[in-house]
Computed example of a mutant assay.
Amino acid sequence: MDKQMNWNSLAKKQQQLQFSGSIHVRRSGETILSESFGYAIYSEGIVNQSSTRFSIASGSKIFTSIAICQLVDEGKITFDTKIIDCLDINFPYFDERITIHHLLTHTSGVPDYFDEEEMDDFEVLWETLPMYHVRNAEDFLPMFQQKKMQGKVGGPFKYNNTGYIILGLVIEQISGMDFVDYIEKNIFQKAGMNDSGYFPMDELPGNISIGYIKKSDGTWKSNIFSLPAKGGPDGGAYVTATEMGAFWEALMNGRLLSKEMTRILLTPQEKVADDIFYSYGGYLQTNEHGVVKYIQMGYDPGVNFRSVHYPEQDLTIIVCSNKSEGAFEMLKEIESLTIIK
């Protein structure tokens, strides 16, 4: 691989997009490309670096999925366990047949507190429930607990954030631990993700990128009023691009789940499009030979995350951005340079 050619190509793409963020590429446990662009905090002139922590929005749903799989591995629940049997929170209008499987695969039919097909302004969400009050999984309950089902349980795949909030509540009740504490102890520490975590937006640690939203006049504002004060089961963890690469290595090497449970986590469950499926661990692309790549993505205002892992090539690509756009285009450029045909 001609690294200089790759760098020139990526630099051109970065300039074209004005991409701000970090990229990390590793093959067979070795880093082959790691670069950062733009500013973590524009007003202070602080640049993004390999040690910069980025919010990855829904890209962190896989942590919730792995936590559930760990509890299944331990025999504390099963994928067929009904929510009514493992959670002492009352959902008066929910179908009693909803299981862990349905929540993991976005087939539960529960009302989504943020339906991305119906809404595009995240700030509208917090007009009745101020975002600074939303710091734990249970804080989301007023947004969906008393609502009727959005669809039929076991119906077609429909992306749903509420389902993962409920999974977080299950993790807390079954483990007896706060959701964030559980993830940090049982996933981040085991994967060597010492800089990753769920941080309150009003108590951010160092080496953090602020998310930026472009205004209609071309200037920028931060995303502090667009997101919950603290991330949780449906998204919002902060990671470095490098540590997300380490995460995939830990997952595929059996440090987070048993070999059989890792296989189950990454098995196609629900068809999304022609060659795209959803597993317990997120999206994946298949062909006639099996899985081509596992796909992680996350989007919030001021947050753009893309990640892929090619199992046959043992290739992982991570792209984190603190702007709303650009990660997908950077990912595609890197794929064109690194995929072995």
Rank of each mutant, 00 (worst) to 15 (best):
G245P: 00
T242G: 10
D2W: 01
P268R: 08
G176A: 04
I166A: 02
S58C: 10
F277Y: 15
D178G: 03
E243T: 10
K76G: 03
V47H: 12
P301I: 02
S258F: 10
G245R: 00
G59E: 09
I77P: 01
I62Y: 02
F199M: 07
L103N: 01
T78Y: 03
K332Q: 11
K230H: 10
W248V: 14
D2S: 06
K12W: 06
W248S: 09
W7L: 11
M261R: 12
S279T: 08
A11G: 01
D202R: 00
V239S: 02
I295T: 08
P268H: 07
T338Y: 12
N48L: 09
F305P: 08
Y283L: 15
L266Q: 13
Y164H: 05
T128R: 06
H106C: 11
M5T: 14
H106A: 10
G75R: 02
I174C: 06
I56T: 04
S20P: 02
K13D: 05
N6S: 04
I334N: 01
K12H: 09
D95K: 00
N223M: 03
K61T: 14
I41E: 14
S226M: 11
L167F: 07
T81M: 04
E117P: 01
K190E: 13
W248F: 15
I317S: 00
E203T: 13
Q18D: 15
R97G: 07
W126E: 08
A241F: 07
P205W: 12
F144D: 00
L337C: 13
Q313S: 03
I62P: 00
Y113V: 09
I89P: 10
L251Q: 03
R306Y: 10
L167S: 04
F79P: 02
Q14F: 02
M5E: 10
L315K: 01
I32Y: 02
G168H: 04
S20C: 09
N186W: 04
N194L: 14
R27V: 11
Q145P: 08
Y159R: 09
S20H: 06
G236H: 06
K12D: 12
G155Y: 13
Y280P: 06
S279D: 06
S36N: 08
W248Y: 13
R255L: 13
G302N: 00
N304H: 07
V110L: 11
T262Y: 08
K215F: 05
P92Q: 00
A57C: 07
R97K: 13
V272C: 10
P111K: 08
F328L: 11
L33Y: 09
L266R: 12
A11T: 02
L169H: 07
L266C: 14
G163N: 07
E329G: 02
G151Q: 14
Q49H: 15
R306K: 12
I276K: 03
V180L: 04
S196K: 01
S324G: 06
Y159T: 12
N136D: 14
G281F: 05
G254P: 05
D234Q: 15
M119E: 15
E312L: 09
E260I: 15
E288P: 05
V110P: 01
L104P: 00
